[in-house]
Design a protein around this nucleic acid. Structure first.
Lengths: 167, 167
DNA sequence: CGCGAATAGTTGCAAACTACAACTTGAGCT
DNA sequence: AGCTCAAGTTGTAGTTTGCAACTATTCGCG
C-alpha cells in the first residue's frame, strides 16, 4: 500500500493518520492550540520550511481542521484557526505531551517546559484517560477491542490457518 | 529545521513525534496493541513495504518501544512486543481512534470496524479525557498551558515586539 | 546429511517528498 | 509612486519511500 491511500483503509487510526500523520502537522496543531494563527508565527516557532508549511496548511484547511480567513484591516493578514473538528484533536496532542513528559526527559536535565492547568478546578495536572462508565483510569491492558458484529476480541490471528495438522 | 533534529527541541510533543511521528509507525503500534508480534503479520496487515517495516521496527526497538526476542522453538521466529514505555502510548492511539470514529465515517457508510470494551466494568465505550483532580471531562478550552517558571499562560506572542511606536 | 518451506530481513533503483533560499504577489502606509 | 510587510510560490538539490527480487538462517523430514 502507498501512504497515499492510507485514508481509505477500514480503520479509524489509519484514517486519522491520513489527516494528521504527515511530518510537521502535529507541530502546526500544537502551535494552533497555543493560540498561534499566522503564517509567519507558525513558520518561526516551528522552524518549518515555508513551502512545506503552505502545503500543510492547505491540507488542514481542506480537511476541515483549520479555517482560513482574511482578517482585513492590517496588510494582507491571513488567519488560520481551529474548527470544532480541529479542537477535538486536543486529546491526541495531550496524550503525546503527557507521554513525552513521562519518558523523554533525562533525569539530569531540566524537564519539560510546559505544565497544564485545569481552568475548572485549578489543578496543575495532565488529564487522564478513564472509562466514561465507571470512571476508572484505563491503560492498554484494561480495554478489549471488539470487531464490529463479532462478539469476540479482534485479537491476534496467531498461527491459525496454516499448519493445520502439525500440532 | 530539519525533521532529523525535531527530537532535540525543547517540547515534549516534538520529542514524542521524533519517536512515533514517522509514517507507518502508529500503524505498527496499532497492530502491536492488537497482539501482533511477528514481522510478516505486521507486513501483511498494514500493507507496508518490507524494508520500511524493517527500518521502523529497528527504530522502535532502539527507542525502547518494542522489544525484539528470538523465540526459539519454531523456525527463526522473532517477536516484537511492547515494553512498558510502549504500552503507555496507548492513550495516543485511543485518542486517534476516537477522533477518527467521530469525524471520518460518512453518515451513509458502514461506520468504524472496532469498538472498545472496558474489562473492568464491561462498558462498551471510548475512554474519555478527564481532569485527574476533579474528574470533569476536559477539552481544548478547559486547559491552560503554563510555561515552566512563568506564572502566566504560554499563549500567543501576537504582535508584541515589533511595531513599538505605531500603536 | 541434504532438501524444501517458512521467516526475517537486505539490496538496487525509480518515483515521490522535503528543505533551503530567493523570488513573486498583493495590500496598506506615507 | 515607492516602501514595507505578510503570505505564499518557484527552482533545485538532497533525502526518503515503495516495489520487487534476492539473501540468510532455521526447522522438519526422509
Amino acid at each position: 500500500m502507498r501512504w497515499r491511500s492510507v485514508g481509505e483503509v477500514n480503520c479509524s487510526v489509519a484514517r486519522t493518520l491520513a489527516v494528521i500523520g504527515e511530518r510537521w502537522t502535529m507541530l502546526i496543531l500544537r502551535e494552533a492550540f497555543l493560540g498561534r494563527r499566522r503564517f509567519d508565527d507558525f513558520q518561526r516557532n516551528i522552524g518549518i520550511a515555508r513551502n512545506i508549511l503552505a502545503t500543510r496548511l492547505r491540507a488542514l484547511v481542506k480537511d476541515g481542521i483549520l479555517e482560513r480567513s482574511r482578517a482585513d484591516g492590517e496588510h494582507a493578514r491571513v488567519e488560520y484557526r481551529l474548527t470544532k473538528k480541529g479542537m477535538e484533536l486536543y486529546p491526541v496532542l495531550v496524550a503525546m505531551l503527557k507521554w513525552g513528559d513521562a519518558w523523554l526527559w533525562p533525569a539530569g536535565g531540566k524537564g519539560p517546559p510546559l505544565k497544564l492547568m485545569h481552568r475548572g478546578c485549578g489543578a496543575k495536572a495532565m488529564p487522564a484517560l478513564v472509562c466514561p462508565n465507571c470512571g476508572d483510569p484505563v491503560g492498554a491492558r484494561d480495554m478489549i477491542a471488539l470487531a464490529r458484529g463479532a462478539a469476540r476480541p479482534a485479537q491476534s490471528t496467531e498461527r491459525a490457518a496454516h499448519r493445520p495438522a502439525s500440532r
